[in-house]
Amino acid sequence: MGRFHLKIWQIMLGGALAVLLTGQISPTQAFHAVDADVMIFLFGMFIVGEALVKSGYLAEISRSFFSRAKNPGQVVLFVLFGMGIGSAVLMNDTLAVIGTPLVLALAADRKISPKLLLLALAIAITTGSVMSPIGNPQNLLVAINSHMASPFVTFALYLAVPTILSLIAAYAILRLFYRTEFPAQEYAIMPATPGDERLTRLVKISLAIILLLAAVNIIASLVSGSMLVTLPLIAIGAALPILLFSEKRFAILRAIDWCTLVFFAAMFVLMESVWQTGYFQSLVSGAMLSSVPLLLGTSVIVSQFISNVPFVALFQPLVMQAGSGTAQLMALAAGSTLAGNLTILGAASNVIIIQNAEKQGETLTFFEFMKVGVPLTVIQILIFAGWLVVVG
């Protein structure tokens, strides 16, 4: 706005302060509106993600993983599926922060278009995060606020297959639009980079805790129909080895994404105030809440204007009040997430990727993103709609 550059967290905080200062929500209501489970989960996962970068273990994993890619086509496939699956575990915004310098280094080393790999990264972490309750913040809201008994199993059952098909579709679309970037050439093995051995050991323990507790929950939900360990407890459990035993704990704490935490706290306050007005509820029809295709389409479109996390915060209570089933909740999670593939503004992770890329002299324009994003999103929505109608 003119000479002022406003970041997403500043805009959301401004909105929250506006409704507080004008008395549209009381300080007590604002305090209770902030979802502690979500805040604790994000805090813990951000610590693990930052330690993963500072330890050098991420660079070690990427070298080992991407050294197997012998040509440009395989590099793009590895980015799509490696980052996609990774975002299902570490959350998409975390992968956006740590993945951008990784793919730009990969582009320079392998002589591949940075734009192609930045697009592959953005699409991968958006699409891959769909299939996990901890893959992105809006999925986390759906899993926690719906009191889902077995979120890992439910998300996998409803969303894993269409997610894999959507990643395959993404590869086909990228190959179509960047066909000149896929010549037949062979790559040498990438050089190793030294890391912090002590912090790496702690990070391995943290990742093992995440995987172990997730497995415990999956088994427990299959046996008893409920989770044994809550999602916030998983995140804090994973962060504890780093907080308790790492000499770099304070450097890690300083470096985590505090702005995103401010964004979420402010969003909960602002969305609670909007909800209390009843205005948003008056715009929504019953058909929209029960139809999987309509929910998917609405989620994609509206998320372009108010962002996917605030949209889910507003829309999920309506879906639940309407008595809609699990398929509708999954459509809400999937549609609001896939909105990030349509335009840059559809997901905060896209903005993070581009901001970090611009620091290194690379970027993606709005229309470069949409040229690939529009046809891809249409295909992905059709894939998810077809699957959810069948399994729902």
Rank of each mutant, 00 (worst) to 15 (best):
A334L: 10
S299D: 08
K371L: 12
L283W: 13
G361M: 09
A327I: 11
V76E: 04
S282A: 15
L52K: 00
G361R: 10
S303C: 02
A220K: 01
S132K: 02
V319L: 12
N145R: 15
F152E: 02
I123K: 04
S246V: 08
L80Q: 03
P101G: 03
I256G: 04
L167A: 03
L211W: 03
T200P: 12
V223C: 09
L345M: 14
R110K: 14
L6H: 07
Y178R: 04
D35S: 08
F250G: 02
A214M: 15
S285C: 06
V309G: 01
Q24K: 13
P232D: 11
A220M: 07
L104K: 07
P232A: 12
P27Q: 10
G195R: 09
L176G: 08
I47R: 07
L80W: 05
V130I: 14
V142R: 03
L295A: 08
G237C: 05
A69C: 00
I354M: 05
S299A: 14
A333S: 15
A265Q: 02
S224H: 14
A16E: 12
S285P: 00
L207V: 09
L253W: 02
G286Y: 01
L159W: 00
I25F: 04
Q328W: 01
V300I: 14
Q276T: 09
A51H: 07
M227F: 06
M320L: 14
S226R: 14
L270W: 09
I134Y: 11
W9Y: 14
G278T: 12
L119E: 01
L233F: 02
S64G: 15
S224N: 10
L329P: 05
L228C: 10
M83E: 00
A120R: 02
L199V: 12
W387Y: 15
V38G: 07
M370V: 07
A143P: 01
L240H: 07
E60S: 15
Q360W: 06
S55K: 08
V142E: 04
T377S: 12
T337A: 05
L140R: 01
L270N: 03
K111C: 10
P317L: 06
V284S: 08
I112H: 07
L231A: 00
A266V: 07
I168V: 15
T298C: 08
L231S: 04
D93A: 04
T365S: 15
P72W: 05
S282F: 08
S221F: 13
L211P: 09
L102C: 08
T126W: 00
A333N: 09
A251R: 15
N139T: 06
A266S: 15
F268C: 01
F369G: 05
L233G: 03
I353D: 13
T260M: 14
I61K: 00
S150G: 13
P293C: 11
A347T: 01
A122G: 14
A122T: 09
S336R: 00
I210P: 03
V300H: 01
I344S: 03
F366C: 07
F264I: 10
S285D: 11
T94Q: 12
L17H: 07
L345W: 02
I189H: 11
G135L: 06
L102S: 10
A122H: 01
P191D: 13
V300G: 03
E368F: 13
T180E: 13
T163Y: 02
Q380S: 10
S282L: 04
A16C: 13
Q24M: 11
F41N: 02
